[in-house]
Design a protein around this nucleic acid. Structure first.
Lengths: 225, 225
DNA sequence: GTCTATATGGGGATAGAC
DNA sequence: GTCTATCCCCATATAGAC
């Protein structure tokens, strides 16, 4: 059918990365031992230290493998959006879609790997310091620069500081969407499952666009409206 | 000046809870050892097993100490809001303020304990399963029930499933606001510090209200708007 | 490249003196 | 209530045979 009839077994290094990704997502980094990883990967304990030099480096590799292509896709979509806009106004919805579409689509594409990668991203968002600052700076430096500029252009009427806070809120919504599957189940008593990526992206973009465009707060008192 | 001239030293049990809260927030649960906690608390290692029976129970106590009063305050504010509304329409901004005001004010009141408690809440939001499900169900059961009903009453025009997703987005924004101080610093290159609680609450409520009230998505294609 | 065996350290928990 | 000393387990990492 394809080239070599049967399926080619995944090399040990990849199996370790796959298992690590899944287990890190499920149990966290400290609570996942190399023994658990190698057991699930069907590899030997010593193989981890052979392919990667340490657990820390393994963690970094797990992230780099997903975040590289993911952010590449984001930039491609933003490029397309800016190209299409030309000198005219930059449509906010397009910028937002470029930002949230790739990660959401990734987490929903393969139900298995998607759930893991999503929760893993959420975990890193919520766990700054130490190891993760390096990953963060390396992977999100360009993303930050490009999207901040695009947002300013798409929303010139929002003041600088207000804009930063709103982007902050936005990232929170996205992170929770990617990582908080269980919370939605709890919230909805299981009634609210996962629909398709298009619907979810549309829902999130609609919510975010309205929030980002809101007229500035009037600084009301503590009373009930 | 007050009653007993000097300061009364905090009892050992409280010092352990304080240290645990701070260290759990900074390093996570698995990465914080009882030895680190007792060292910071100026207590003996065995004291943890004397006052609490295990590390797990200590973790639960750390949460219960903050979440109890916090959610009590939320319900009080929601009560006041509903009382004020009477039979008339329930103002969405008031409901939102009852939800986000107590946690934000708590995290900003005491800069030290506030930052810890905030990050801790964020950590739990992002780390479901096991221990945390119990805490979740116990602490947030009533909150969920009351606020879901209030939201439906304040926003009858939003369809049920859409509402659930939007509340999901909202919780993400709040969690990130409480826990993601470093991310805002990274995002703004340090330009965006913490203002006062009133301003932040007003900003968040404005953002959320607009997002929640947005007309339902029209399910646009992948193109740039 | 893959294995076994082990070195080394740190963790949670507890017994029992004071 | 608070301490010291210790038990027992599991982690990461490495050495060295195959």
């Amino acid at each position: 059918m394809n080239r070599t009839a049967g399926h080619v077994p995944r090399p040990t290094r990849d199996r370790i990365l796959d298992a690590a990704e899944r287990l890190f997502a499920e149990h966290g980094f400290a609570d996942t031992s190399l023994r658990m990883i190698t057991a699930e990967a069907g590899a030997n304990l010593a193989a981890v230290n052979y392919y990667f030099q340490s657990k820390d480096i393994l963690i970094q590799e797990v992230f780099a493998r997903r975040l590289g292509p993911l952010n590449e896709k984001r930039l491609q979509m933003l490029d397309a959006c800016e190209r299409e806009a030309g000198d005219g106004p930059l449509p906010l919805a397009g910028v937002l879609r470029a930002f949230v579409d790739p990660p959401i689509r990734m987490t929903l594409s393969d139900p298995e790997v998607g759930a893991s990668a999503g929760r893993l991203l959420g975990r890193m968002y919520m766990q700054p310091g130490g190891l993760f600052d390096q990953v963060f700076q390396a992977q999100f430096g360009r993303i930050k620069q490009r999207f901040m500029a695009a947002m300013r252009r798409a929303l010139p009427e929002v003041a600088e500081e207000e804009m930063l806070w709103r982007i902050h809120f936005m990232i929170g919504s996205l992170a929770h969407t990617l990582a908080g599957r269980e919370h939605l189940a709890f919230l909805s008593d299981g009634r609210c499952g996962v629909t398709d990526a298009d619907t979810l992206i549309a829902r999130l973009v609609t919510f975010l666009e309205a929030g980002l465009r809101a007229p500035a707060a009037h600084r009301g008192g503590t009373a009930c409206e």
